[in-house]
Computed example of a mutant assay.
Amino acid sequence: MYSKCGSLSRALEVFYSIKLEDRTLVSYNATIQALSMHGHGADALRLFDEMPTWIEPDEVTYIAVLCGCNHAGLVDDGRRVFNAMRVPPNVKHYGTIVDLLGRAGRLAEACDTVMSMPFPADIVLWQTLLGAAKMHGDVELAELAATKLAELGSNVDGDYVLLSNVYASKSRWADVDQVRDTMRSNDVRKVPGFSYTEIDGIMHKFINGDKEHPRWQEIYRALDDIRSRISELGYVPETDNVLHDIGEEEKQYALCYHSEKLAIAFGLIATPPGETLRVIKNLRICGDCHVVAKLISKAYGRVIIIRDRARFHQFEDGQCSCRDYW
């Protein structure tokens, strides 16, 4: 519970308060998973290696520790754990290894792993490869994964968005338009990005460019102050994250009002100085928002915890727990 609410330290306190002889597989699994989700892959791996011999790891244990290796970029350690599994690996274990290799840029190995599995790849595995292709700008792999997803009957917005983003990163705008036309013809709509933050027991939701919040004008003024302060720390907008065929100034404007930035700005004006800010994001945090959150944590002396679609990011004094690998 503590780790899922963003408090890893409390989760660890509970675990280490349990006597060694009283710890169970469930407590080890939960703690390894907590460390993994918060970006402490090396610690998750260490705890896995230190499990008592009388506790036998199960499928969940291996998923948890492989996720830790994945989020920390520990490719060799992940392969070691996978190859030494004492239970038959299932599609989720393979998926984690494919994601690990893909994030590390070892796309050929990731693809070979999918092709050599003892069972057919499912939709999630091909989506994982598509995500890796987007991350590293591999058009050929992206097109292969998109084709396989179509053959499997997948018709979700994320597939189209990832393929479109790969094309956009290469300025192939005609292909981007074709993907969008296909989305429209298949009646697929892109899920908008949104973020939540809880203040005094009330949940506040923000979407990109939101002006629906009753305090939106204060929030926008806070964003102006944020931009001023972080510019003094060397902030330059990462407009490469705006994958649209628009001008540089328009790209900078689009970046300013991402939902997580709005949630953080609201948190700054709605909570006492020094209080930890917690934000939940439905999609993966973009590179520019990640940089901005780091700089806000330094400029305002705040701890900011953002849980995106895949993991937790804890920003403190200009650094992130993910060590810029996510």
Rank of each mutant, 00 (worst) to 15 (best):
L12T: 00
D317T: 09
E151D: 13
F315V: 05
K134L: 11
D317M: 11
C289Q: 02
L144K: 07
A30M: 06
D225T: 13
R80N: 13
D187E: 10
L101D: 02
K211M: 15
E316P: 11
T276L: 08
V75M: 06
Y167L: 11
I97C: 06
D175A: 14
S228E: 15
E50V: 07
R215C: 13
R184E: 11
E50W: 07
A174Y: 08
I18W: 00
A133R: 00
S3D: 01
A254F: 07
A142V: 05
W326I: 04
F194L: 13
D43H: 03
A310G: 14
A72F: 01
T147N: 11
G247D: 14
E248R: 14
C69R: 02
N83M: 15
L295S: 03
A34H: 01
D157W: 10
L283V: 14
H71M: 04
V26L: 08
T276E: 09
G73L: 05
I202Y: 10
D138E: 11
A293D: 07
Y253K: 09
V179Y: 01
K294E: 03
L107I: 09
H290W: 01
Q252P: 05
S169E: 06
L163H: 03
D76S: 15
L100G: 02
H258L: 02
Y300A: 00
H258E: 02
L141Q: 02
F119P: 08
P273L: 11
Y28N: 04
G274S: 06
T128Y: 08
S27K: 02
L35Y: 01
A270F: 07
M203S: 15
F266L: 10
A293Y: 03
L149H: 01
L162T: 04
N282R: 08
E212H: 13
E275F: 06
D324Q: 07
R323W: 05
L295T: 03
V179I: 11
T128K: 08
I97E: 01
L35A: 01
L233S: 15
W173M: 13
G131L: 11
V188D: 02
N70H: 10
D22C: 14
R309M: 10
T96H: 04
K298C: 05
K298G: 04
S259Q: 04
R46E: 08
V179G: 02
I202L: 12
M115K: 15
L66S: 04
D200M: 13
I207V: 10
Q252I: 10
S195T: 11
D49M: 13
G39E: 00
E316N: 13
F48P: 00
A299I: 01
D138Q: 09
G41C: 07
R172F: 05
R23G: 02
T197W: 04
T113V: 12
A145H: 05
W54G: 12
V114L: 14
A168W: 00
A270R: 04
C289P: 03
E13M: 00
H258G: 00
E260P: 03
T61E: 06
R180F: 09
G68P: 06
T113D: 09
D181G: 15
L101F: 05
R103E: 08
Q319M: 14
T96C: 09
I269Y: 07
P120E: 10
V292P: 01
T31V: 00
K205V: 09
V26R: 09
Y28A: 03
G73K: 05
L125K: 03
D225W: 12
R227E: 12
E250G: 09
D122K: 06
D157E: 10
E249L: 11
T182C: 15
